[in-house]
Amino acid sequence: MANTQPLIQARGLVKRFGDFTAVDGIDVDVRPGEAFGFLGPNGAGKSSTMRMIGCVSPPTGGTLRILGKDPTRDGPAIRARLGVCPQLDNLDPELTVQENLTTYARYFGIPRRVARERAAELLDFVQLAERAGSKVEPLSGGMKRRLTIARALVNEPDIVLLDEPTTGLDPQARHLVWERLFRLKQQGVTLVLTTHYMDEAEQLCDRLVVMDGGRIVAEGSPRELIERHSTREVVELRFVAESQEDFAGKLGGLGERLEVLPDRILLYVGAGDTAVADVHARGLAPASVLVRRSSLEDVFLHLTGRTLVD
């Protein structure tokens, strides 16, 4: 592969709004064909980063190159090759589903005939073909999101930016969106997405960075991150008590690490079943016990001391 030049390259990227620093000097490289994720809680600086990459928000400091170009100088040329799916759907309520795609294509200077063909293909792709003539408003949240994704693909972009693509959707709708995005990934489209769902990041991302307070706190593939920052398995214990804290002391020495949450205790261990047996051996009787594999949620908890979704 000759082309190893990153599609997006950020060095010391900063975004400030007045006194508030939303993005605090981050370094990012996104390579062609990969699915790259920004994982973090609300307010971590993910959306600000995405808006800078989308060339609609000038960086306050650092350097940013997208497709080898400078977004402050070549904004229109870069945007011509990007597809953007914003956090909140900003579809045109006065147009039909199909017209939303065709008019959007016109903003890219795509000829009308091509726009119509492409709209039809994309509506098939996001399974909205039978709603082509409908207005946008009666569509469900999941349908609107799929339409927004289709709209982001109308210019056959080199990079697709997805800001929290499944936030606010019900589980079924989320899976449908994931499945479509996975298809895009297989077609070799470069995806950049933000999310605060660890399952989403694990499902879709080849590589991701964990953001907190405007900084990158870890970087790697989901597997690498889990191996590096967590144990193989986790035991979740729930005790019937005023405070889980009371029991934390009695679990000392079990597992590599222990996190006390308001409603449960997480025990980080190599082998879950052995640990559960040890807990019972100490005469403790938790109301519920769950053994599971480590996830990005645990990585995040370890790195920041907080849960992702509050």
Binding site: G54, V56, G75, P76, A77, R79, A80, L82, V84, P86, L88, N90, L91, D92, P93, E94, Y104, Y107, F108, G109, R151, N155
Partner: peptide
């Protein structure tokens, strides 16, 4: 309210 131009500005239109 429609946030129409947020969508438009993601394209080459200035």
């Amino acid at each position: 309210f429609m946030k129409l131009y947020d969508g438009v500005l993601a394209t080459p239109v200035q």
